[in-house]
């Protein structure tokens, strides 16, 4: 049954990338328990607008938990208190009347703040560009059923491929490590025959790019797994470690002569 909540919000406001930010307190009244967390912020923004104040900038898009655009550290937890839930899928029935909610952006050197709660996550794109693909041009594919993939492997690949790239793993990790994100992609391909030809190169290249972006290292605290809205497991990190270890022995840098167009 729908109820109404009165809440106190403490929201991180920051004019721009270089500006100094701070928590600003906003009371909101009459929030429906059926509303989503982002709809609650919509309501706040409408009110701010009426008062002539600038609305709070926050990232969001699909609002159905799949695009990975929404973020938010809610009361110190990525995507709020629920497991396997994105902020857009978090509903206000999860909160009590009179609650104070602290809302902060993801924080990491590799995710610089653009404004208020909006951060720049293009580091993830660059990590994928380093090797998160199977190099097949259009036009080369054989009949799909020529590649057999056992159901178990396909399921494990899918488990890992379900990553939505939201960055909660980085945001929740005490080291701001992107290991779970990288591990998910490496595992996805390592589980499939299509991923085998570039398996070692991929592990090396993606880890090198991850390090270059300034993400921290993994210290096996597994907070990322608890924070991940897509349910990616830390077994993928073990898999990444294994792939990386093997590739360190097996993979030799391409010789100059074999360098083709790419």
């Amino acid at each position: 049954m729908e109820k109404k909540l009165n809440l106190t919000l403490k929201i991180w406001r920051q004019k721009g990338p270089q500006a100094q930010g701070r928590l600003v307190t906003y009371p909101v009244q009459g929030v429906s328990t059926d509303a989503s967390f982002l709809e609650m912020l919509d309501v706040l923004n409408e009110e701010l607008l009426k008062k002539g104040e600038e609305p709070v900038a926050f990232d969001h898009d699909c609002r159905e938990g799949i695009c990975g655009m929404c973020s938010l550290m809610i009361n110190g937890q990525t995507h709020g208190p629920d497991r396997e839930t994105t902020t857009c899928q978090l509903h206000m029935r999860r909160f009590k009347d009179g609650d104070t909610i602290v809302i902060e952006p993801w924080r990491a050197k590799s995710f610089p703040i653009l404004k208020d709660l909006v951060v720049d996550r293009t580091a993830f794109d660059r990590v994928i560009a380093a090797g998160g693909y199977a190099s097949v041009n259009v036009g080369n594919a054989q009949d799909a059923n020529c590649i057999l993939v056992g159901k178990e492997s396909a399921d494990r690949a899918m488990d890992a491929a379900a990553c939505i790239g939201c960055g909660a793993c980085v945001a929740s990790c005490k080291n701001a490590s992107a290991m779970l994100f990288v591990a998910a992609k490496v595992t996805h391909f390592a589980e499939l025959p299509q991923g085998q030809p570039e398996r070692y190169k991929r592990a090396q290249a993606m880890v090198a790019q991850m390090d270059a972006e300034g993400f921290g290292g993994c210290t096996n605290t597994y907070e990322c797994e608890a924070a991940c809205p897509a349910g990616i497991q830390v077994t993928t990190i073990a898999k990444l470690n294994r792939e990386y270890l093997k590739s360190s022995f097996a993979y030799a840098e391409e010789s100059k002569s074999s360098e083709g167009e790419g």
């Binding site: 199977a134 097949v136 259009v138 594919a141 799909a144 590649i147 491929a161 589980e191 499939l192 299509q194």
Partner: peptide, 10 residues
């Protein structure tokens, strides 16, 4: 065919 070759986990 193309998507499978890319590694889409159907």
């Amino acid at each position: 065919d193309q998507c499978v070759a890319q590694g889409v986990p159907f």
